[in-house]
Write a protein that binds this DNA or RNA. Sequence first.
DNA 1: GCACTTAATTGATGCGTGTCATGGAATTGC
DNA 2: GCAATTCCATGACACGCATCAATTAAGTGC
Lengths: 251, 251
Amino acid sequence: MTQRRYSPIKIKTAQAHQCTISSRLRILGQLPFFQDLAEAELVQTNMMFHEQGYHAGDIICLSGDPADHLFVVADGRVKLLHHALSGKEILLDLLTPGEFFGSISGLGGDVYPDTAQALSTCCILVINRDAFQQIIRKHPAVSLKVIEIMSRRLQAANERVQLLSTLPVEGRIAFLLLRLAAKFGEKHDVGLLLQVPLSRDDLAGMSGTTTESVSRVMSQFQKDGLVRAGRGWVAVTDTKGLELIAGEKAW
Amino acid sequence: MTQRRYSPIKIKTAQAHQCTISSRLRILGQLPFFQDLAEAELVQTNMMFHEQGYHAGDIICLSGDPADHLFVVADGRVKLLHHALSGKEILLDLLTPGEFFGSISGLGGDVYPDTAQALSTCCILVINRDAFQQIIRKHPAVSLKVIEIMSRRLQAANERVQLLSTLPVEGRIAFLLLRLAAKFGEKHDVGLLLQVPLSRDDLAGMSGTTTESVSRVMSQFQKDGLVRAGRGWVAVTDTKGLELIAGEKAW
DNA sequence: GCACTTAATTGATGCGTGTCATGGAATTGC
DNA sequence: GCAATTCCATGACACGCATCAATTAAGTGC
């Protein structure tokens, strides 16, 4: 087995302090919910954010803590997770630049619903919750976008409930890999390389199973030529094959 | 075993045509997202809805169909569900008067994400998707409420993912019953009676298991004095006991 | 009241997967 | 460089729970 022994992942991460004003404007302008804003409004909105840098492993916000900020990923990768009573980590989502998390809704005594942790060096834009509500009040277009995004996330969560309820481990992992490939996949000589540092543990947390089971399934997938994987990285090589396992096995 | 052989559930259902203008106003006014509207605005908003009646079992909207309406439950019970490829029904949510479903977000080529089915005789208020977007544009307070509600739903969905990933069947069902009791429970001589017609199948669809497993667990719960149940109804008698099973067993 | 239909229960069996345990491989620290 | 650590792979085993099958109970229609 001559297989790569180094991680092919190269996430282009800016240092926290490299989030210049202009790059911030660019990032904000790319945000789905600021798309419809005029340039002047965008500049003004931009000023309401401040930025913050994190290193891989840093906790950005902790589930249960009093919540008064909304965060936007400007650069890097962030994972959203829950800690179950059993100690197991439930991985809820992986966020890329342009996505938001934290506190949006307006109740006074709100707490962060999930924990957010930096997967790589990150630049995060932060805004006060109330300030963001002001933006929403001023710009109905923004609120419509937010609603749209949240409804998509809700759909994704429901889809996941369905997978957990119906598919066996093998199918769940296949499905998960396909989703990840669609979001993070980049053409590479080893296949569609997922541009996120993901351990078997992370995959387990996303597919509702254990590290060992993921390892077993991944080994099998690799034997079957569906994926290539190493320590902390995964690449999808046969999309069709995974689709077959994710879908058809449900019958 | 001298146990009730008839369903104690009595859902106070109005006939579809009994949704009078005044009762509609009352219902709309109670909607979380219209709470902050002035009386005049409410009356005006009211006129943008039309109503529709359904009988138990009727399909209100079908997952995958082109979506152009937003629905609000005025009276009765509605269940939101997915049909898995395996034929299994995944029950996503149970809706009571005041809750909404259908299409909110604005994409042109949208389809309904879930199927909605009447669990009892229902009166549903319907509004065109574009018309509702007009309301949002006009009233930022409404959009904030919608966002708040959606974020709560997302949280609930994530919680469910966590349960499915960590708890055994017994714990999931216990947790489910507690949630249902909090939402639908009414004091009754048999205990906290769930005012929803729920079969074992429905419970299975909500807890990600099978009819048989639900039946077994429910029988055990009944022996242990935690619940009382019959054909199509459930009552919780020992909340603390269920909490113990739902929580502590995870350790 | 009776047959008829649908829902719920209960038992037997086997597969999938979590759990525990061990060894190897890759990475980090000194 | 070598130890120490972390991550991954793999095997053995037990058990939870889905599956299949058969029976009982509860509503429904006539």
